[in-house]
Design a protein around this nucleic acid. Sequence first.
DNA 1: GCTACTTTTTGATAATTGTCAAAGGAAATT
DNA 2: AATTTCCTTTGACAATTATCAAAAAGTAGC
Lengths: 194, 194
Amino acid sequence: MTEIESILMRFLKQFDITEIDQQLIYSLSLQCRIQNYPKKIILSKEGSHNKYVFIIKKGFVRRYAISDGKDITLEFAQENEMITSRYALVTGNPTIDYIETIEDSVVLKFNFESIKELHSIYQIAPKIGNVLRDRYFLKLENRILTLQKSSGEARYNDLLQNHEHILKRASLGQIASYLGMTQENLSRIRAKKS
Amino acid sequence: MTEIESILMRFLKQFDITEIDQQLIYSLSLQCRIQNYPKKIILSKEGSHNKYVFIIKKGFVRRYAISDGKDITLEFAQENEMITSRYALVTGNPTIDYIETIEDSVVLKFNFESIKELHSIYQIAPKIGNVLRDRYFLKLENRILTLQKSSGEARYNDLLQNHEHILKRASLGQIASYLGMTQENLSRIRAKKS
DNA sequence: GCTACTTTTTGATAATTGTCAAAGGAAATT
DNA sequence: AATTTCCTTTGACAATTATCAAAAAGTAGC
């Protein structure tokens, strides 16, 4: 098995996808490349028509948008997680967000268009898509529940409890915008805890 | 065409689902009922094992959770929209949220289990599911961007601009929790605007 | 080690928001 | 129409958060 195939296998195994077809893995593996990036490299730019899906083999990656001139973190992805601009994939419009490495990273880079074709060929590809989408739902809904908490401390506690790794790997400003507060406030909330 | 079929057609037409199969519509129509509810009726309870999907024909419906003893609005649905507890559908666990009518409503009520079977029979059912999921993504991602804005006024403005109908049809407390603030604060923000 | 650069912390102050309580309005019921 | 109930607004005050500025701490390159 190639390295790419083994990364794909490891990624899919976490989702209780029982029917992992070796042939499908092989076909997928032909549609992507392993890429090495230093930190602070932009993998996907706003306005871009190229639509990529990234699976993180090693490192830490962030998706963000510029809204009202401010850098707003939308999503983090660590090892064995996937990150992509769903807006672009779903609407077919140019990307409205950026994806960048926070740490030196090794990622599997797919061109989404080439995967789409596989969807119609293999029965199993849609099933994988469904599972990935369903997982992402839960993630988003939990995130919304966190953001609805009006006190900053409550939102920080949610992150501490459910995604502690983010606090260790991202910068203060990145985390603060993710939680919808200023970095000064986050710094003080954190200080109060220790 | 029965009334149920025509509601289904109208619902699906808004999603650019080109291949609407009359046979599928018919099959779906057998799996659901039209229900009339007065306002303030709970359609789905926390802890329930019955999983329903509702399409709103007329009226206004709200999904909410009780978190730390507080009523938190998660979602609103108006005419021609769908509402359901995705958590329950995806995980198979009992529902963790409630769905209730805000106005007198006419809804199409599906039992999700019976639809699931159709998925495997018809080619098109998964495609519809995909489109519905994709739309819901965008909704959630936009909602997150709104909630990340730290000032209450900015969040209110987002709602005013993108979902003004909510401000007209829901109560202050319901909207306030939806935006992650107290109703007193929302009342003052609103007063300041006029 | 030193310097330049970036990130985090701290301080002071203003603005926003939450909390509790009471008053005012609107809607439903009798 | 009057009463009850529910929802919204207002007031006073406390707590939280944002903003701006500067200091401190941490990183990277030399």
